[in-house]
Computed example of a mutant assay.
Amino acid sequence: MISWINGELVEIWQTNQKFFVLINCQGLGYEIQILESFFLKLKTNQISNKNITLWIKYIKKEDSDLLFGFASKDQKFFFIEILSVRGIGSQIGMSILNKFSISEIIKAIKTQDKKLICSVPGIGQKMSDRLILELKSKFKSKVQIEEEKGQEEFEITNPEINKLMDDLQLTLQSLNYKNKEIKTILPFLIKELGLHTKKEKNLSFENLLKLAMNHLDNDNSNLAR
């Protein structure tokens, strides 16, 4: 059982709507399918550290062994929960997480937004009904409770900003900042930039990441004195 992997990034590539990394870990090359958001960060050098860590879900099939990698443990466990729904395979699970953040999926299931769920390729009306029915009972898991609390606290209605903040949180986690620090800085950034009421015209992910890292590093420096 592979729980997570840490190694040197060798190569990234895209095949149709699938995204992959090749990681060198102690002389072995691991081919891992990843989410599009993480792939784009690697491609655009938003993650400069080429020694990366991914949380792994291993799936064994009759003709192949598949590895799926996630920037956070929350993403991995939510992926596993999606796969527990009858009829949903690994590629549909990845498509769901490629298109929506965890908080958006939870909100869609809570509000029974079948139209949004059906917008994912491969999911029809019957499958969306089953996904809503089977995942509703799992909302009390630790991962989902944390996501819901964060969403209610931020009170962001703009889906673009919502996705931006989720990507920021995952990137900071991949850079080894502590979850407690990240959850403290996100509400501060939202309030400081007014993201809960409007969208900054010149806001970019790179600038947002730099701002978050500056605040986190300053806070850590003050604590060290």
Rank of each mutant, 00 (worst) to 15 (best):
M1I: 13
I52K: 05
T111I: 09
K163S: 13
V143N: 00
G87Y: 06
F154E: 04
E152L: 13
W13F: 14
Y30R: 08
F154R: 08
I52R: 07
G89K: 00
D219A: 08
T184L: 12
G93D: 02
Q14K: 12
K199Y: 03
K110W: 02
S101A: 12
I59F: 13
K43P: 07
F77W: 07
S137Q: 09
G150M: 15
N218K: 05
K126E: 11
N24C: 02
F79K: 04
F38V: 14
I56L: 11
Y58G: 00
T15G: 03
G93F: 02
K114V: 02
I161T: 14
L208I: 05
I32T: 09
K107S: 14
V85Y: 04
F78A: 05
D219F: 03
L83S: 10
I96Q: 06
S84L: 04
K201F: 00
S119K: 02
I92Y: 00
K210S: 07
K142V: 11
I47K: 11
K76M: 07
Q75S: 09
N24I: 00
W4I: 00
V120A: 01
S141P: 01
T15L: 15
E160Q: 13
L189F: 03
K142I: 14
D65L: 11
E200K: 10
A212M: 00
E147I: 01
Y30V: 11
I106Q: 04
G89D: 07
I52L: 14
I190N: 04
Q17L: 12
I80C: 06
I80A: 07
L189A: 08
K57E: 15
I145K: 01
N218D: 09
F188E: 15
K114H: 05
K191C: 05
E148R: 06
G93H: 00
K138E: 05
N51G: 13
S3F: 12
I32H: 12
Q26K: 11
G122N: 01
G29M: 10
L211Q: 04
